[in-house]
Design a protein around this nucleic acid. Structure first.
Lengths: 91, 91
DNA sequence: AACGATGTTCACGTATACGTTAACATAGTT
DNA sequence: AACTATGTTAACGTATACGTGAACATCGTT
């Protein structure tokens, strides 16, 4: 019986971890898509974008695919390179 | 608003550096103030905020005063600790 | 099939954000 | 004045984002 409780506890814990991990990954996904859409809306390839930011296309790919862990300054540069501006608020 | 005056007074140590770095510094200032106001709106001191984020008050101070170069994940944690959410858009 | 354009992933070195401690500043209180 | 609460700054070690080059995967085109 205590085995069952332990199992349930463990199961719930893993569910929480899964959900938290999922939400974090989803946020990264959202921001990455935001950046990708902004770039494509300007008709730029990752390579052209890389030139504007004085870096390489691999870096652009990484930014768009791991956007949760980029710096705000990087996000700012990305937007500026597209002639656009960031809007950040806390709701 | 006296915060802004103190900030500018501080930045005026060198007018040249002040002008050159103003835009970037001002963005950091804006985000820092955003975070600080969000924290104070929840009635938290930097020390209480530090407890929620499992870190120290000095880290909170640094976040609020050098906010341009923090990671998105850090910004996310800050908002989550206040039970709030980030809104990021590119305009 | 071969090719070019575009995007992804990996590995490695460098730059820098973050965690922590300590010292210091500045209010307000006793 | 001494004390308390709050916030700032500097220094140091660690974690990780970033710059870079190379290899690879998918496309559509010839």
């Amino acid at each position: 019986m205590s085995d069952l409780k332990a199992y349930i506890r463990k199961r719930k814990k893993s569910d929480v971890e899964f959900r938290e991990g999922f939400e974090e990954a989803y946020k990264a996904f959202k921001i990455g898509v935001l950046l990708k859409e902004a770039r494509e809306a300007s008709g730029l390839t990752q390579e052209k974008m890389a030139e504007k930011l004085h870096t390489r296309k691999s870096a652009i790919s990484r930014i768009e695919n791991h956007a949760e862990d980029i710096r705000l300054s990087t996000l700012e540069k990305f937007a500026s390179a597209l002639g656009r501006s960031l809007e950040i608020s806390i709701r």
